[in-house]
Structure formats: C-alpha cells, structure tokens
Design a protein around this nucleic acid. Sequence first.
DNA 1: CCATTATCGGTAATCGCTTCACTGATCTTT
DNA 2: AAAGATCAGTGAAGCGATTACCGATAATGG
Lengths: 339, 339
Amino acid sequence: MATIHDVAKASGVSVTTVSVVLNNAPRPVNAETRQRVLAAARRLNYHPNAMARGLVSRRTHSLGIQFSSVEPSVVTNYYASGILSGILAEGAMRKYDIHLFTSLWENATVSGSRIKAQRTDGVLAISPVIGSDIASGLEQANLPVVVVSAPSGLPNVPYVDVDNILGARLAVEHLLELGHTRIAYLATDRTMHSEREREAGFLTGMQEAGRSVAPEFVVSTSYVLGDITQSLARLLALPAPPTALFVCNDNIALSLLKAARDLNVSIPGTLSLIGFDDTDLASLSAPALTTIRHPLRDIGATAARLLIERIEGRAVPERHIFTPELVVRASTAPPPHRT
Amino acid sequence: MATIHDVAKASGVSVTTVSVVLNNAPRPVNAETRQRVLAAARRLNYHPNAMARGLVSRRTHSLGIQFSSVEPSVVTNYYASGILSGILAEGAMRKYDIHLFTSLWENATVSGSRIKAQRTDGVLAISPVIGSDIASGLEQANLPVVVVSAPSGLPNVPYVDVDNILGARLAVEHLLELGHTRIAYLATDRTMHSEREREAGFLTGMQEAGRSVAPEFVVSTSYVLGDITQSLARLLALPAPPTALFVCNDNIALSLLKAARDLNVSIPGTLSLIGFDDTDLASLSAPALTTIRHPLRDIGATAARLLIERIEGRAVPERHIFTPELVVRASTAPPPHRT
DNA sequence: CCATTATCGGTAATCGCTTCACTGATCTTT
DNA sequence: AAAGATCAGTGAAGCGATTACCGATAATGG
C-alpha cells in the first residue's frame, strides 16, 4: 500500500504539499505541481489511510448508530429498516459512512467505551428504552448525539420523532366519527417511549370526547401470533365487546388480521381495526389496513442531518417532530347495528 | 479525554506497562501493578483511541458492508434486513462492529478508495449485480472479502448463498405434483444473480419433467403494484391461461395477492401462487403464501463468520450454499377442473 | 560463587497523516 | 529603492496508541 511519502517522492515534492493538494486545503499551490501530485497519486493507486487521518484530524466522517437494549431481531424490523434507510440516504448525500455498534446499550459505564473510542464523529441513539442513560452517557463523552424516537431529556441533545399522541388521537377521532363507542386499545412492549405515548394519546383522546374506557379494553400482548389471537378472543368474549380496536403498531395489526380470520371474525364487519405506522404491507393486506402514517425514512434522514449539522458546528433545533397522518383504507367501517 | 500517558502517569508506570495490562499481552506483570493500572484507567475514565490503535495494529475490529449498485431503497428491504440482522448478530457475538459504506459500488477505480482506506478489517459485498467488479476490486486491495448472494468468481473469495436453482425446482415440483401443467413464471430485475438462477431453475425443472414452457408464460415485472396487476391480467387473458404461477420473490407475490383480489381472481381457486423467500409476512397474508424458505439471517451470519475467520487468518471453505425448503401454505391447490 | 534464567518494567521507534512555523522568491506599493 | 504582500513550498512536531529491544533484579543450578 502506497503512503503519502511514496506519493511525495514520486512527484518530487514534500508530504505537506501532497496533503495540501489532496485535501484541497485553502493554500496556494502551483497548478502544474498540483497536476504532478494528482498524477502520482493515481499512478501509485494511493488512498489516504483513514486511521492516520482520523488520528490527527479528529474526524472520521462516519456516524455511529447505537441501538437500544432490546433483542437484536428488533434491530432489523420494519421500524429499524425505515430509520436506517433514511440515515443511509442522508449519509450517502453528505458523504458520511454509517458505523453500527453491534453491542446493545446497557449503561453508560459498561457501554460507553466503544463509543468513546472516537471511532465516529457522532452517534444516533435509536429508540432508547425509557429510563436509558444513553443520551447523558454519550453526552458526557463530549460527542454530538441525536436521539431518535424518544425525547432526549437533555436540552442540548436534539431528538427526532413523530407526534405519537396526535397520531393516536387521529385514530380515536376516526373511529368516533364512524360511530364507534366501545373502542379498545392493544398495546405491547411498554418500555418503548412511542408505545406509551400512543396509549396515552388514545386515553386522552377518548376522555376528551367524553368517552370512558373500561380497564379491560386496554390490553397488552406480545409479537407472537398465538398471544395476539388470545388477546383478540378475550376481548370479543367480553359481555360488551368492543366494536373497534386501535393497535399500537401495524406489525401487530397485521397479525391481528390473521388472528381474526382464524377466529372467523369479520373485519371491518364486526370489528374495525386501525394500526399505526403505515408499513409497506398495510396497503397489501386483506382488508387493506387503515392506519396512521409514521414517516420513518424522513425521521432517519432528519436525525442524520441534524447530527451532521452538529458535528460540523452549526446550530440545530432542539427537536424535530413530524406530524402523523390518517390513512383510511378498508379495515375500518361504522359499527354493526345492535342485535 | 484521557490518554494512555495520563494513565501511565497516574499509576506511576510506563505507557508500555499500561498497554500490556490493558491488552492482556503475554508478558508478566506484577499483580499489584496490574491493579494499580486498572484502577487508574477506571478512575480517569480512559478508553483507548480506536484510530491510534488501528493505525499501529492495522486492525479495526470492524466489518465493512458494501451494497451493490442498486437503488438505496433496496438496501433496506426485507432482503437486506434479514442479511444485516444475521451479520449484526454474528458481529455482536465476536465483538466486531459493522461499517456501512453509504456510497454504492460503481467500479473498482471509483469506489475502491473508501474501502482501501483500511477503515475495516474486511468487506462483505452484498448481492453484487451481474458483471460487477466488486470482488476483484476489493481483492486487489488485499482486503479479505466475502460475497453474499452471488458467486464471487474468484477462487480465493468465499461466497454464501442459497441454492436458488434447487429452490425453483422445489417450487416447480410442488406445482407439478398438484397436477398443474400450465405454469407461468413472473420475474423482475434480471441484473440480480439470484433471479436469473431462479428463472433458470424454473425452466430446467419444467424441461426435465417433460413440460414445455410457452414464451408468453415467462414475464417480467417491476415492484409497482400497477405493473404487477397488469402482468397478471395479461397472463389470465391468454387463450390458455396458466393455472399456477411461480413468482421470483415473496414481495412481488404478496403484491400479486392484492392484484388478484382487485381483479377478482381466486387464489388458489383459479390460480395457484408460489413465492420465494418466506418473508415474515408470507404466513400472515390471505391466503397464507406457499413459498420457498430462504434463510437470510443464517446467510448473513455465515458470511460474517467466514469473513472474520479469514481476517483472523484461518482457512475457510470456498463457499457455503444453504439448502432451501418448500413451505406449503394455502396459496397453492390442485388446478380447477376443465370447463 | 558465578553464570544463567525468569520476572518486571522502561525507552524509543513507528504507524500515516495534518498542520504550524518558517524560508525564499517574486510582485506591489510608496 | 526599501519594505511589505503574496505565492510556493519545506521541515518537523505531534496525534495516541503498540511493540521491539534492552536493563535491572532476584532466583536457580552446577
């Protein structure tokens, strides 16, 4: 592998000049010299060593991604996929690479080391669980940080998210407008900030409309189809079963569609169903899923952009909250007539 | 940020000793000295600088990922998700981070530089398009490379894939066994190696069973629902329409399910449908999709493992080909009776 | 009792690059 | 014509680690 010294020797100048030419440093260089250096670099197939460069310039041109402490499989679900896709697109545009820390975040002392090794210019904390010290842990390392899908809790750490509360209210409003009164909510992993907000949005939405929610109408389930089927069966076995169901995310809503088929429950005939996220597959299911749009790619791209702005020393807003949108498809309808 | 010198000073030893202690180097160190060093490192919140370490040791403990030159969105579809998930899991286990090169591969001269910057210990080339010089381009940089989802074309570059030809034949056999004779194939992007193999597998499978395939029974479509619907409509408008359809991947098959509903075509009543990949959603669709299992996570994990083995100087097999499996669900059935 | 060896530790070179401080020319300006 | 300015380029000091090489002491054996 050729080094900068080889290029200097080959073009008859000092390493300083080579460095200046290759980095387009703001400093006069004779046009002919420049060409000689460039030619030599090409001829020797020279590529500056990223480690050496990073060591002295303290810049790596790469963005770290730290996932939260949830199972690794969740890392590559549709959620993480969407976020990552946006980050990659933005990174490509601004010439930053993406560095994924494979170990999950535990706490600042244990997990800090890899990040503090200065391997990246900044870190994106993806959907930290509630109570995580990731934002403060990274901030104390004096590294620019942007949090995705949760408030950072720190004034100088920006975060990007969708307005989950508003989204949940849009869902509730839609169901109320259709004439539903007995509306249930299906939750899952409550360690996620977004899910808590959605549940809260559902509850306050109902409350503001003057509707009370029976405690047995708020149930929690896992991602396993069997559990989902059971939750549905239990809800429908209630003396006064719900006529509509708001599910915390599309993944579970899609599974619930399957569960409903298995239980011979007609959707939206006997039960209206609304999800959250607007996954690619929401439009392909049978019936197509009514849901709330969650702009994952935009969120990822914005987070990356804010992080890069911070890295490059520009001021950035404290947060960027996207507005969700109701997407009406075929899984919601007016409630069935009383029998 | 504390450096190794600070730790040395704080514990009253030389930097050598600090380095030896921290790296558990094979060299005797007094137990008490060791403790002093460790304590000082902890107290100063010291973390070795990855750049400095990488510069001298020529090891970064990270795996590069180079995507092929397809649209970035494809980078984070279910395919890339699955592969990435496996890579991450393996990386986590073996303490390697993952570095995503955001720029897509163009050719060895243009795209080589980022990789040759020695930022990673090796590179995984994900699904290079046919004719890509990525394997040779990386190999010439003298970096360990493993190719995913395509043959590397180079004897010393291992690759990992599923047996697409066998998979396609399993699909054909299944349909033939059900009694179908008029079987069509729906292809898409033919620049991908896997899709070419699947098409070839379909064709030879049919041929070996003594069935001829009419040219209009092999059609190509895009990922856009409209195009898929049109392709389906055209196939069914044929004088002797197919009774079964083998689709090159589940994504398109799932869209096709939707298209069939829109066109009022019963699946599997009038048309049997079989996909390829066994996406998470294949089991949730209505009807549940019969398909061929493509072990993406295993492929990703194996590719990462092979790369790490190579990096660490161990011998690895030239390739690792996974065997696909037929997963029978509800989208295939015997052909309808003649009318 | 001296040579040998095991143990414990230090000095300094090195990795490949950026950048500060500086030197000569050549060109303006008063 | 002397004094700045500007232009083009060099030398050397790091950046923060690893590691080859060497030194000193204590234990061991013939």
